[in-house]
Design a protein around this nucleic acid. Structure first.
Lengths: 340, 340
DNA sequence: TTGTATGCGTTATCAG
DNA sequence: CTGATAACGCATACAA
């Protein structure tokens, strides 16, 4: 059977001291080239691998980053947009030797705050993939001295990487004005609880004014994040037929796809009767009929940038000025819009 | 500042011995009710929480389960079917006090096998969410004495929870025969590398014979798991127009949605000209136009059952007979099929 | 350059 | 019932 290997018995078998083994493993201190090679070879041969717990107990670094992934009603990992970002974050940090560990509020019987959990596990940093502004525990966590980044929330002392929502909306307006040459538009937003959605609504108001377009109605707020809420929202929007817009901007693709379906059920042709633009470019947007014109967020870049930022923070925790990185977005033109 | 709390200084402040504190935390050994209460109260007051590394170092249990989530080309967490199962698994084990940790092949500079990683981290068990039969490391892991379950692979010594594919296919045939009263059918499978796909093809062959239906052509194998491969596959299937089936069974919804799109592009009406049945019931199947008739896999039950099984295994590692749990599936009828 | 000793925060085994 | 004390496996300052 595989006997338990420690630097101790390895040292004995090699006729060396435990400390020496440790040194070669960590590339630290002085050790002669010959013994280093000898130890390395032996370690590889017997397949020794250091005990993480012991290492973590001794040194301060755990090479673990805690993940906050707020889940609403069992969705969570299932949310393709955020899991995609997390996936890219994950592959990036793993190459640098970090691991992911989900922060969980109750560990067995104990009920822990985020902060307590992090202290307990001694994570080196925290990544808030998706958070909730109502969650008090998040504030405590962010206020602490633990390095933290997010791709979702904007909070003082929190480093955040987000898409440039203003630019995205502007891209749409440029397109409407210069290519589509439309005048009457409407907007369906997601819930007000999301910062990103709010930024987009604000930009929408700003640019309708700036570009002198006509809002056919008040902004409609979908009551959730998904397909069905979009479906309902577009019915609400078009209740009064005289106000029919030429184009509907929608806060996210998930919602926009529901809008498309609703329009189809109302026998309103897209893009002939009404055109639709989304935001995000989720995987399904290009497969839907009609395929959806949208603003593409670079999920890979989002995840990687967050990863890079966090690693930098963990390496030198002194720089504690909050920083907001805005990433450029891109207009993807598909079938749901068309020049007249 | 938050001073670092250990059972040591807590003991001192309470005028007790460290060991005593440990006992009340772990509900072990004998300790008088009064001191137990006193300690508990104090702990809660100062928000003490035990250091995991130390605890893990000392005791054998780590209360961590390693996750194998094989990713092909950066998809991974983004795959809604598997992330959904993982999500349910996660919530279940977390309630029991376990945490998830993704197994990663290279930890920093070192390149580790799954097994080495698990020994290193001393995980209590392993959950293979999605694995690859070509991956030799998986065999080594499964052969070891570490408790392991999967919702994807079938391997000797591995405990597996899967949907009953045979039953699912039979459900479709019953429906075809008794409700739809169709005769000519065809099948589009996913890649042969997947066990689940193979089981479904086998069942398809078995039941076409048993129910005396007519296969209009050989089984077509999509060359990947996604939408596009389904799109291509249906073109290949219908290359020769005289062989048009009345109904196409597809190995998965992801692929089936592509089939639907392909059919639409060929101006073939669903369900009027050809009917389509999928497998899985992914979130989008009910939103597509036409919505997809399919076999629903109970992802929540899959995740939870895997979780329950693994926990049982970790609690008593002696029972090492491999076990396969088959979960029932359900036919969901939507627009892509219709009685004539 | 190499070996030794100590501590990291727990748990567990003994005595008291 | 409670208090010392020895591991757990490693890192590190210090001595050799």
């Amino acid at each position: 059977m595989n006997k338990k290997r420690t630097i101790y018995n390895i040292a004995k078998e090699l006729d060396l001291a435990p400390g020496t083994i440790s040194k070669v493993i960590n590339n630290t201190g002085n050790v002669s080239d010959s013994t280093r090679k000898r130890v390395l070879a032996y370690i590889k041969k017997v397949g020794y691998v250091p005990n993480n717990s012991a290492r973590m107990l001794k040194s301060k670094r755990t090479y673990t980053v805690g993940i906050v992934f707020t889940e609403e009603s069992d969705v969570g990992l299932e949310h393709s947009f955020f899991s995609s970002i997390l996936q890219h974050f994950k592959t990036f940090v793993e190459v640098q030797g970090y691991e992911l560990s989900f922060i969980v509020k109750k560990l067995g019987q104990h009920e822990l705050s985020y902060y307590e959990w992090c202290m307990n596990k001694r994570v080196d940093g925290v990544y808030i993939v998706v958070g909730n502004y109502d969650d008090k525990g998040l504030y405590e966590l962010v206020e602490s001295s633990i390095p933290a980044v997010s791709t979702d929330m904007l909070l003082p002392k929190l480093h955040t990487v987000i898409s440039d929502n203003d630019q995205g909306v502007k891209l749409i307006f440029d397109y409407i004005k210069e290519e589509l040459k439309l005048k009457n538009i409407a907007y369906i937003s997601g819930p007000k609880s999301s910062k990103a959605f709010n930024e987009r609504v604000d930009a929408y108001h700003k640019y309708t004014q700036e570009y002198q377009l006509n809002q056919t109605s008040e902004v409609i707020y979908a009551d959730s994040f998904g397909f069905t809420s979009g479906y309902n929202a577009v019915y609400k929007l078009l209740k009064k037929p005289e106000q029919k817009p030429e184009l509907i901007m929608v806060a996210s693709d998930d919602i926009a796809l529901g809008v498309l379906k609703g329009l189809s059920d109302m026998h309103i042709k897209v893009p002939e009767d009404i055109q639709v633009v989304g935001f995000d470019d989720i995987a399904f947007s290009k497969h839907f009929t009609p395929s959806l014109t949208t603003i593409r967020q670079d999920r890979k870049l989002l995840g990687q940038t967050a990863a890079r930022l966090l690693i930098e923070l963990m390496d030198n925790p002194n720089k504690d000025v909050s920083e907001i990185v805005k990433l450029p977005v891109e207009l993807v033109i598909r079938e749901s819009t068309r020049k007249k």
